[in-house]
Nucleic acid binder design. Structure first.
Length: 423
DNA sequence: TCTGGGGTCCTAGGACCC
DNA sequence: TCTGGGGTCCTAGGACCC
């Protein structure tokens, strides 16, 4: 007998928060419960979350808000700007409960996590108990899909969302019949382009894809496509990292609340994004080897410009980052040309512990002093309030700032915004 | 007129080397 | 007119995810 047969089957469970951003808003604002609600992205541009009631009214995911203004007015749909401070905090609470309840967990996104389970007859009941606990402790409803691989767990999760219990256990013997009902475009890892290609090639269901020839898949969909096919067959190819690998790049970018037309304002925006990106990498103990800055013109069709700046040695020092962002991009920008959006990317990230020093640079105490200054700055801002101390070059008024007209309070992360009730 | 932000991985092709 | 073969490294761009 082979050893494999005696090993208990391992399963992946995908825990997914239902309509997460809407659910977060509903935890504190009871008037939103049972009503159609949508959450829009930064700058109040696109619809990025919908309550079931809003979905039923035909509001699609990712649609520009302005295209649906008439439906929103007519149906009295509530609109909220996205409140990432709130969502991030509630997400952390949900993930903490999962961590305490299971051995293996991989947080996949703000509202999703994979957990590993070992087969026994009680998987379904375990999942139901977990669901109840998270709803009770955080107010967030979740769905759990269980399958032999992550891709199959994703499939199961779709069915869980539609089921009464919000839990679905996809057993091996049911895989074929379930996959036969699933169109390729709904498979995790198959995007718009690939699903068009597959459909024109006669592969229309997930079962068709599962039965496709390996060499054909590899040739037309690269190894990532082949992994998906193996996963559909129940062979895990997307394994969890024991130690999640460090980030390779960090971006900070925003659309402007109104078009920016001057070098001065574009410079302020670049400085702000560079400063924010610097904070992010210092938090992770990383240094950037180079920086890219870009600007997207208004309207979109008028193109973008971008430029890269290579540091003599990796850095996370905000003044250096700001200097690089402005120095790289501003000379390429022509005063008066309207900009829609800009951003700063820090790339070639290395751990600050393993810093590679440049032989030809004199290492005065100045660098070390800056390092200390940055850490004092970060500590202060953490204690006193988000970005309480900023760099003057970021601008004071920031009239170009992103719009968030209908943002709810940061109930859980700001004392002055805590929910008040009258008794 | 209006359409987000932040990531990852893979491949093809160019530059360069011997 | 003819003018190799085999490698590595890097980058841009495409495709995907939430």
């Amino acid at each position: 007998m082979n050893e494999q047969a005696s090993k208990p089957q391992r399963y992946f469970a995908l825990v997914d928060c239902n309509n997460f951003y809407v659910s977060c808003e509903r935890v504190f604002d009871l008037t939103l419960r049972g009503r159609p609600v949508v959450v829009v992205c930064n700058n109040d541009g696109c619809i990025i979350a919908r309550s079931n009631e809003a979905k039923a009214l035909g509001i699609p995911m990712g649609a520009p808000l302005f295209q649906y203004n008439h439906v929103i007015k007519k149906e009295k749909i509530d609109v909220r700007s996205s409140n990432y401070a709130l969502y991030g905090d509630i997400s952390a609470r949900v993930m903490k409960i999962l961590e305490e309840s299971t051995e293996e967990i991989e947080v996949y996104s703000i509202d999703e996590a994979f957990i590993e389970m070992t087969a026994d007859s009680k998987l379904f009941e375990e999942a139901m108990a977990l669901r109840k606990k998270i709803l009770q402790w955080t107010g967030i409803p979740i769905s759990i899909g269980i399958g032999r691989t992550k891709t199959l767990a994703k499939v199961a999760n779709r069915l869980a969302k539609k089921s009464k219990e919000n839990v679905f256990f996809l057993k091996e013997e049911a895989e074929e019949s379930v996959l036969a009902e699933l169109s390729v475009e709904n498979i995790w890892g198959i995007g718009r382009r690939l699903s068009v290609f597959l459909e024109t090639s006669g592969v229309t269901t997930a079962l068709d894809l599962r039965r496709s020839c390996d060499t054909w898949v590899k040739k037309n969909m690269s190894v990532t496509g082949l992994r998906t096919v193996f996963e559909l067959r129940g062979i895990p190819c997307l394994l969890s990292d024991d130690a999640p690998s460090a980030k390779k790049s960090v971006t900070s970018s925003r659309s402007f609340g109104r078009p920016v037309v001057s070098k001065l304002e574009l410079g302020e925006a670049l400085a702000s994004y560079a400063a924010r990106a610097g904070e992010k990498i210092r938090e992770e103990g990383m240094l950037a080897s180079y920086l890219s800055a870009f600007v997207v013109f208004h309207p979109y069709t008028t193109g973008i410009i971008s430029a890269r700046w290579i540091f003599p040695e990796p850095t996370s020092n905000t003044p250096e980052l700001i200097f690089a962002a402005k120095e790289a991009l501003l000379p390429l920008y022509k005063e008066g040309k309207p900009c829609r959006k800009a951003g700063v990317m820090l790339e070639g990230l290395v751990s600050s512990a393993a810093k590679q020093r440049d032989l030809f640079i004199s290492h005065s105490k100045k660098g070390d002093r800056w390092e200390k200054t940055m850490s004092i700055l970060d500590d202060f801002n953490k204690k006193v309030g988000y970005r309480a101390i900023r760099f003057a070059s970021e601008g004071i008024e920031k009239p170009w700032k992103t719009r968030r007209a209908k943002c709810s309070p940061r109930y859980t992360t700001r004392w002055e915004e805590v929910l008040k009730i009258k008794i």
